[in-house]
Write a protein that binds this DNA or RNA. Structure first.
Length: 463
RNA sequence: UCCUCGGUAGCUCAGUGGUAGAGCGGUCGACUGUUAAUCGAUUGGUCGUAGGUUCGAAUCCUACCCGGGGAGCCA
């Protein structure tokens, strides 16, 4: 049997209402005549205070077994609470303990724990205030992503997780194989004989669904992916995961301006939904995690994003009255310190840098008239840095072929990608957004490993 | 992968060559309806691992393992 969730009673519960709730004990406070339990079922940051009058004899034995972490079902009547921290509470009449929790060994205490420690107990950390708030906000974000695109007529498409395209670009790929790793078939020259493997050729976990998304955009006009993505890069940072979720819209009949408009509208939309649906959680982040969370949200929703070209950005960086560790020179990629200066210090708002030099961007980005830059865009935000990377795609067959050659890539690997330019090509554009970075940005959480329930990173796969 | 800081009680940390500590937690007790409850008592250790220097090492040296922060790569 399913009872209404605790959040329902906190919002709409009426005094004298007879109710039953189920959840896990967060804290227990004992006095001579009363015991107070705070019970959470994950539906809200705030738990329900359960008051147990120890004069109700049949409850005394149960109460003795109640400790932090135990799972219970409580029935009783709601009452207006005389306490300051809550407006309503539950006066218990019956109490069932489903699973006890030994207070001597249960690792979660009433005090504040470090995130490093909580990462070592990934199976219990969702029961804490912070991770509860994070995963509720993460859920709201995911829901907002779908709602945003669906309202705009985008088709949600599922691009493959296993792929053969060893495409140029993002970092190392994980190999997918069915070989017995102790006995890998070899060719006479010593190389691996992939013809005997499951797919008959090398296969990998996807690093991006973009190329396949372009296929579907050429049939459905506006599409988006939202699914897992994998990078085998040995990155040990607070912004990288080996397995993360990426959102990649792709739009036919769209140029870079349309792409930027979409990215900006998208971020504003998600922030608005989260502020509306998770207001208590967002206030918690602002109070306990990073006191700029609400100000940043307000800044995103109410300001136009700054847009400028890479060339202009270089000029501004060269004029900055500040020493950078890395050189600023046209043709070199922007470093983290440069991006942070632009978004955090100079403009103090999300900043979109466009039209990067050809040589530092991918082959599929559309070449500008100047022949030196491509229609790329990076959206830079305070704290997190690059949250979105995108471009208008090269839709001209002969230009694309030339660029594939220049990048030293093999033409026959991209035969179907090139076909899209042979048959009904159109200007199109899209971007990729790291979902965990979005959640990081919204919540103010410093480490990306704390915004995904089960982080995957080098040496990190326990849970 | 590189740089850097760190690893001491269940947790957060102090201890820089001479008898292993505090706060929190747990346990026991007290207590006007408490809410990081409060008060009193008490419990708790392979000082990351393996070597080395020394009369003596948590402390100094070497190697390795693990974690944080920064960088690169990127989303």
């Amino acid at each position: 049997m399913t009872y209404p969730r605790i959040v329902h009673f906190l919002r709409q519960g009426k005094p004298d209402q007879l109710v039953t709730v189920q959840g896990w004990i967060r804290t227990k406070r004992e006095l001579k005549g009363f015991t107070f339990l705070e019970v959470s079922d994950g539906s809200s940051l705030q738990g329900l205070q359960v008051v147990i009058d120890l004069e109700i004899v049949q409850l005394v034995d149960s109460v003795r077994k109640c400790h932090t972490g135990a799972s219970i079902t409580v029935s009783g009547v709601l009452a207006t609470s005389p306490g300051k921290e809550q407006s309503i509470e539950l006066k218990a009449q019956s109490l069932i303990i489903h699973g006890e929790s030994d207070p001597g060994s249960y690792p979660l205490q009433k005090k504040r724990h470090s995130f490093e420690f909580l990462r070592t107990i990934g199976h219990l950390r969702p029961r804490t205030n912070t991770y509860g708030a994070v995963f509720r906000v993460r859920n709201a974000c995911a829901w907002a992503v779908h709602q945003f695109f669906q309202e705009q007529g985008f088709l949600w498409i599922h691009t493959p997780i296993i792929t053969a395209s060893d495409c140029e670009g993002s970092g190392e790929m994980f190999t997918v194989t069915n070989f017995n790793l102790g006995q890998i078939p070899k060719n006479p020259n010593g190389s691996v004989d992939y013809s005997q493997d499951f797919f008959g050729r090398p296969a990998y976990l996807t690093v991006s669904g973009q190329l396949q998304a372009e296929i579907l955009a050429m049939a459905f006009t506006n599409v988006y992916t939202f699914g897992p993505t994998f990078r085998a890069e040995n990155s040990n940072t607070s912004r990288h995961l080996a397995e993360f979720w990426m959102i990649e819209p792709e739009m036919a009949f769209c140029d870079l301006e349309g792409n930027m408009d979409l990215a900006e509208a998208f971020l504003k939309y998600v922030f608005k939904v989260v502020l509306t649906n998770c207001s208590a959680d967002m206030e918690f982040f602002d109070a306990r995690i990073d006191n700029s969370v609400l100000a940043v949200a307000d800044n995103i929703i109410n300001n136009e994003f700054q847009r400028l070209t890479y060339t202009d950005a270089i000029a501004l960086l060269q004029k900055a009255d500040r020493q950078f560790e890395y050189p600023v020179e046209w043709g070199l990629d922007l470093q983290s310190e440069h991006e942070r200066y632009l978004a955090e210090d100079l403009f103090k708002r999300p900043t979109i840098v466009t039209d990067y030099p050809t040589q530092i961007k991918a082959f599929y980005m559309r070449l500008n008239e100047d022949g030196k830059t491509v229609r790329a865009m990076d959206v830079l935000v305070p704290r997190v840095g690059e949250i979105i990377g995108g471009s208008q795609r090269e839709e001209r067959l002969e230009v694309l072929e030339k660029r594939i050659n220049e990048h030293g890539l093999s033409m026959n690997q991209y035969w179907w990608y090139l076909d899209l330019r042979r048959y009904g090509t159109v200007p199109h554009a899209g971007f990729g957004l790291g979902f965990e970075r979005l959640v990081q940005f919204i919540t103010g959480m410093a480490n990306i490993r704390d915004v995904i329930p089960f982080p995957r990173a080098p040496e990190t796969i326990e849970f």
